[in-house]
Design a protein around this nucleic acid. Structure first.
Lengths: 144, 144
DNA sequence: AGTAAAAATGTGCGTGCGCACGCATTCTTT
DNA sequence: AAAGAATGCGTGCGCACGCACATTTTTACT
């Protein structure tokens, strides 16, 4: 752990373990919304035509492909997204964010963004923040 | 996500989601050792007198306090650690790494460290690595 | 000393998560 | 055109994880 090479990785693991449950609770208590739901809604809202197939959703969101089905089930039951079949490929199922879903997302965004700022970004300089982002994005684009 | 403030956080989440399962599998296939076991063994080995109470272990390792009991159960069953009662406080239980545990740890270390280097550190500059470490460690020390 | 609060640990239970598998549909090959 | 491979998706199942609670021991207070 003390090794310089592994220090960054060890710190990443600890930050994740410390902050993710905290943010999840805060979001859930103030907005009744698990972090997973927020992530899915965010990606759907940013997607072209506000819809994504299950496979695409599993790749872009921080949710495993197989888990997507059940999360979308919950979101459909909550009225935040709808299921639609792709007429050009009847295997495929689209998840489409509803108006209620966008409303919920807009309400939850400031809470989540505030938590990120308060627990994470505010404790580093702007230069460090940029450095972390570029470094981790390089790791990401390499790991595909 | 595109926001500069949240970019670092979003990248951290994605890197964690992408790399942790991969490293866990690699470690488990090549050494028969889950990542959780490795972390616990590492902390025990680095601790004074090679032992830690359950509470201390839950704080220092990336394992929740309540989860520690069962993980130590497994490690005891595997012969990698031993349970000892604290003679000065009979509530407390010490987890002590065994010789077999140290042997297993030494065998697994190069595999894990290699994976960290290969999947993570090698994709950023040394300056970025240091920047990531210092930034995340500041986040950590602030979040207690 | 005696009683109540606090601390440290272990456990029953519900939940989240991913793997292996099966079903329906589409693509490819001959 | 027919058959086999490949793709996209959903589901049964087992494992990991944390919360609330019970138990035992220590500490604090009167």
């Amino acid at each position: 752990m003390g090794d310089t090479d592994t220090a960054a990785w060890a710190a990443l693991l600890r930050v994740h373990a410390a902050l993710v449950p905290r943010m999840d609770r805060e979001l859930q208590q103030q907005c009744g919304l698990p972090l997973t739901w927020y992530d899915v809604l965010l990606e759907l809202n940013a997607a072209p035509d506000r819809r994504l197939s299950m496979g695409e959703l599993g790749e872009v969101a921080v949710v495993s492909r197989t888990r997507v089905s059940r999360v979308v089930d919950q979101l459909v039951a909550a009225g935040l997204v709808g299921r639609e079949v792709n007429p050009e490929d009847k295997r495929s199922a689209y998840a489409v964010i509803t108006a209620e879903g966008r409303k919920t997302l807009r309400a939850a965004a400031p809470v989540y963004l505030g938590a990120i700022e308060r627990y994470f970004t505010s404790h580093m300089t702007a230069a460090e923040s940029r450095s972390v982002a570029t470094a981790l994005e390089k790791v990401l684009s390499a790991g595909r």
